[in-house]
Design a binder for these strands. Structure first.
Lengths: 241, 241
DNA sequence: CGTGTACTTGAGTGGGCTCAAGCAGGGTGG
DNA sequence: CCACCCTGCTTGAGCCCACTCAAGTACACG
């Protein structure tokens, strides 16, 4: 079978070489041919706002590389309440936490419009076991995720820290691109599920930020909406008692 | 060089083969001789209550296998407040999160009397890179830790869930041995730093549990004290709104 | 046996929750 | 293209849990 360029394999719709996974996979001992083979089974999908990419407890059958938008990773506490434990952004890979488990550990839901590449788990596992150096890279990636989760724990949670401060910290973490001022605009319900408050309180704080000009609403549909944030002001609030 | 039995290498003070790491390392493709070599650099330490095993930001020079007692993993939020992000118990390994980083990610502090084996990081890294199958096992271990951290997030945190409920959930997780009724007894300050409340509130809830006979205080020094818990009662409270 | 730290307990306050009503604006169907 | 509708957001009033401040107690350790 004739090899095509990876771009074509990806149906010309995207450049797989811009993918976060590719960053992990090239280097080490992966040849270009291997990479092209790997890309053979990959498909490119659009997810509209609110649709699930996969569900907690469902059989683990693929990982997904997020190419645009934001994805919330949801868990449920013993009382059945929804809790958002992490947020993925462009370049992150959804599902690697569960890569060697039977079922997905979370439900992954699109926030706004999302594009993602679906990589069947059989391809993924085979590729990883064929290339020893990759395991090391995955290990690093997994440890990054752990660090991120712990950062959420220590910065976003905690009854002692006022909701206002934690919200500022959250918005700083929800920036679409590191260092930019564009902020993923989640629903009040989502924000509540992240930092552990009620939607009403979230609304009051945001209204306050908007009145002070610290946040400016943008976008004209749930799929594309966002905030512009006054980053220095948010950073100041984030450090308050 | 003559090989000695691992027990002797460990100065006869402990059986390295009961270690949580060993569980990861044996199986796969590690020979007994390799294991004995590996154990050559290991030392066995006692830590008294409150002493630090290592500090956040310090150069990463070893991992520690916890052989007895409990260890709190501490971080600091932007306001300088102490937050406990995870608790290690017998069989867990402290420092693997940072195994491929320059510095430690947390401060690790003994709660009660702790025994731990110190494994120099150079040994550890060499051993891992020599044995391909180990990376896979470490990856799994790392993903376990991630799951644990996210469980804390979703179960112990959250302003909506009453402190009483979260405390019950915490005590269930702090059992010394899975399924037992012996519970690691942390200071009020520590408990406060874990679930994000004040020590006063923690005191009130515990006093209440003790009055109801759900918890019974045991041990006669900070180094050895513990609770006995009425597990069914705690489980019932843990599921309340 | 003394000293200090950790814990207990109380009274008062306040931030965030609850319940409830009104509003806006995006999506849908006529 | 317009009007409706429904979801998500806003805003208010009152209450309650957990925080704060403060004092007193117990007990671990030297």
């Amino acid at each position: 079978m004739t090899k095509m360029t990876p771009q074509v394999r990806c149906q010309g719709r995207s450049n797989c070489f811009a993918c976060g996974l590719r960053h992990e996979m090239v280097c080490s001992d992966v040849s270009l041919d291997d990479l092209i083979d790997f890309h053979a089974g990959i498909e490119d999908f659009d997810y509209e706002h609110g649709s699930a990419i996969y569900h907690m407890g469902a059989p683990m059958e693929a990982v997904y590389c997020v190419r645009g938008g934001a994805v919330k990773m949801v868990r449920y506490d013993p009382a059945g309440e929804q809790r958002i434990v992490r947020v993925l952004k462009t370049g992150d890979v959804a599902g690697i936490e569960s890569a060697f488990a039977e079922k997905f550990e979370h439900t992954a839901i699109a926030v706004g419009r999302v594009r993602a590449c679906r990589i069947p788990i059989s391809y993924f596992r085979k590729f990883v076991s064929d290339h020893g150096g990759l395991q090391m890279r995955l290990l690093r990636k997994s440890q990054e995720a752990l660090r991120e989760a712990e950062t959420w724990l220590s910065q976003l949670m905690g009854g002692t820290t006022p909701a206002r401060t934690r919200m500022a910290r959250l918005f700083l973490r929800l920036r679409a691109v590191e260092g930019g001022d564009k902020i993923h605009r989640f629903s009040l319900e989502d924000i509540a599920a992240i930092i552990g408050i009620t939607p009403e309180t979230a609304s009051r704080v945001i209204s306050d930020f908007v009145r002070q000009g610290i946040l400016v609403k943008g976008g004209n549909s749930y799929a594309t909406r966002f905030f512009r944030g006054d980053i220095p002001a948010l950073e100041k609030i984030a450090q308050e008692v």
